[in-house]
Amino acid sequence: MRYLIIIPCYNEALNIVKVFEDLTEFIGATRLNADILAINDSSTDNTEQVLRENKICFLSLPFNLGYSGALQTGFKYAIEHNFDFVIQFDGDGQHIPTEIQKLLNAQAENDADIVIGSRFILNSGYKHGLLRSLGTKIFTLLINMICGEKITDPTSGFQILKKEVFSRYAKMGAYPRYPDANLVIQMILEGFKVREVPVKMQLRIFGVSMHAGFWNPLFYMVHMFYSIFMIIIQYGASMFHHQKSIK
């Protein structure tokens, strides 16, 4: 099995080398058949120069496409190079490479299509802002109501995706701007097996999160509710069948 670790980067010049070194160490120690691919989302700092100097395999987007656009580029690369799994990994130092093993184990045990690394199944000590904490709880509740499944951390970007899943994402005409609870709901309703596993995460080392500030999380919440509402309209019948099959 071949794995591709995708790291979307926007202005991560200060973080990316450490992330890359830790990942390489993990791959070496576990002998995982994995390649690392950074996607420079048109950073305004010297991320590209750092990637080049450290001989990290990377793609450079000609202009900023945002987190989801960068991820989708990685999925397209994974299809072109015939990878079996994609591991989404953040370039800001939040994700811990050794925790990948937990995702790998959960995927193998459950033959899951998507495995999400969750900060909230066990108390990992990870601190969210008040608004985001509340948002995560509401989205967990919504997923449970719509799909009948418990996903505690739908906003986690730490995931393993099977080929069928990332191929689907790569070809999605309108891959969501925020691929979180909305996408989890959609994939469950489309019949994909989604599992969660508790993982530890740490706060980003340098720089600012894309959800920083007051307006960004607020806009994110409104956007996410709307997106979920549209999925309910689109997948209304599947929702009914899915809940029935669980019962």
Partner: peptide, 8 residues
Amino acid sequence: AQQNALIM
């Protein structure tokens, strides 16, 4: 843009 990045 994505195809451009892949081709580059």
